[in-house]
Amino acid sequence: MEGPWVEKYRPRTLEDIVGQEHIISRLKRYVEQKSMPNLMFTGPAGVGKTTAALALAKEILGKNWKQNFLELNASDARGIDTVRTNIKNFCRLKPIGAPFRIIFLDEVDNMTRDAQHALRREMEMYTKTAAFILSCNYSSRIIEPLQSRCAIFRFLPLKGHQIKERLKYIAEEEKLDYEPTALDIIAYLSEGDLRKAINILQAAASLQEKITEDTIYEVVSRARPKDVRRMIKTALKGDFMDARNLLREIMILQGVSGEDMVDQIYQEVSRLAMEGSIEVETYIKFVDSIGEYDFRIREGANPRIQLEALLTTFLSK
């Protein structure tokens, strides 16, 4: 029974982690000393934050790591109170067969300021028994007092050659037949996100015996939601109601988050401009409003309303 390659080839040790050398060497020191401060991992998706946390836990806690490790997501749909209850219940117990316990809390930047303050209190309460690893995409959205209680590690997007190396390793292990340039294309398209790169590789392997550049383009094209393009074109034609319906379908039914929507809208608008479907002058105006609404989504309460508003800026006069 094997999981998707993203899991199958997740590095199990700190040694195996791709890139982030400066961070890994520090983490290894914690392992040597068998102690660690509270940590904060920040950086974009797919650069090794979770992998580093898992590997560190395994190495520092020893063979009983699983019982002493708690993985939680701060944006749990059941609410922040559930998250806090879980932390409390976990921390009340003494570490079993390990020097201390580790709580890995993902997406802390999605917590409200109030919840972050509460978290700070909890971190103080359990300093003797537990260490926290907080993970987030944007450290700017973390309150000062939380940041000051953690050693902060900034994970960088992976370099093209680092991604390519890892893909090559996987391809050899899986005995894939591939054109070397195909891996270059993946490395380029994945924009420093190794998870995405590996997903593209596995999807390509599912499609064809021999992986070529065209295979990669096909994967990326098919994985890209068609609806976003259709939605933008509908708005450009001036049909706001239909465009809005498409937006709702994508967000509500497919569950695409506001941030991902902005991302995809930006990509599609860029593509339309490259193809000449949008005039340059209009393009730069659109980019500006996308940026504006990207910002508003972070400030506002309802990303869908912000995106509906963004769509109105695409309506022709």
Binding site: P4, E7, R10, S75, I200, Q202, P225, G255, S257
Partner: peptide, 26 residues
Amino acid sequence: KKLHISKKVAITTFPYLKIILEDEKT
């Protein structure tokens, strides 16, 4: 849960998983 990612990230991997699942054995 299985892939140690948030639900949000899980949803972004759906389109790739969909293609991956086209291979019967996988």
